[in-house]
Nucleic acid binder design. Structure first.
Lengths: 153, 153
DNA sequence: TTCCTAAATAGTAATTTTCTTAATTAATAT
DNA sequence: ATATTAATTAAGAAAATTACTATTTAGGAA
């Protein structure tokens, strides 16, 4: 049985608070999905989350995982990362918004702490009457080791 | 029967040239996928492309559409747009790289002619030994009409 | 506490996307 | 032209994702 760190419980509480504030219900399934991230490393796939959640709640449906991930992503609580081996999700602590460099060969994922969604783009959106609610920015390429393995020939 | 404009043929030829230069084969199916964009408006879905391609080549498999779209996207010939009603693809003429504002309500899609993939990000990638090959940037929100319909309450 | 209601869920079905394999075919050299 | 080879393909199976419907339940009100 995994032990949950204080840090993890803290993150969980903050996420639940966001849900509550926005009027969403705190169901055992929803709580379990959030808690499951603690047992999946930084990035969790849908299948990993399903497996972990079912340890405590065997009847949870796959749809519930997807539905909750979609909601959590809309609220900015989790981020989706598109990797060659399939998609994964990570919990984003409030105020730590960031983006990713993804290696298309091995799937290695690193954070970039600069965000393109600055005034320039918001102004561009405003000009057209768009009300911005979110954005996706991901950079693809070869990580250092795949680069030297594949390109030095 | 759709007539193809000179402009379309020109675009098609340029796309084929890119494929040839990179050593990819010009199969009838591949040519048909590219040509099909001419009959699908600016944005084409996988199903629309399949339907158009099958008018001339009834045995083309769905997998072929997907496989070629993946390749064309890797080469920067087409761009994928993630919309609430499903994904769509558009042909990007060389030198006209751009990004999109997507309305999450109605799916309306507009171009933004500024790209975040500037020196700043390349430098960030370089620092970590990453070799950048591509990127995704999409902005989501509500278009002018959905905005006034939904938010003015 | 009990009741009410909209939200959320399980279970299932449908759809979309990816993978596997054997056969076909375009491009190149002969 | 013909043969060779590696890329591409069709077909079917598998995996991932989304949609549908009847039922359950969290959270607020009485």
């Amino acid at each position: 049985m995994e032990k949950s760190t204080e840090q993890e419980n803290d993150t969980l509480d903050k996420c639940l608070a966001i849900l509550r504030k926005q009027g969403y219900k705190i169901t055992p399934q929803r709580r379990a999905v959030l808690a499951a991230f603690g047992s999946c490393g930084r990035f969790a796939t849908v299948q990993q989350l399903l497996e972990v959640v079912r340890r405590t709640q065997p009847d949870v449906s796959l749809d519930t995982i997807y539905r909750n991930l979609t909601l959590l992503a809309e609220l900015g609580i989790v981020h989706e990362v598109h990797r060659p081996s399939g998609n994964a999700f990570e919990v984003v602590a409030p105020g730590h918004h960031h983006h990713h460099l993804v290696c298309t060969e091995c799937g290695k994922t690193e954070c970039i702490n600069i965000c393109p969604m600055n005034k320039l783009y918001e102004k561009e959106a405003d000009k057209r009457g768009f009300f911005v609610t979110g954005h996706v920015f991901e950079v693809y390429g070869l990580c250092a080791s795949c680069r030297s393995r594949l390109l030095k020939k």
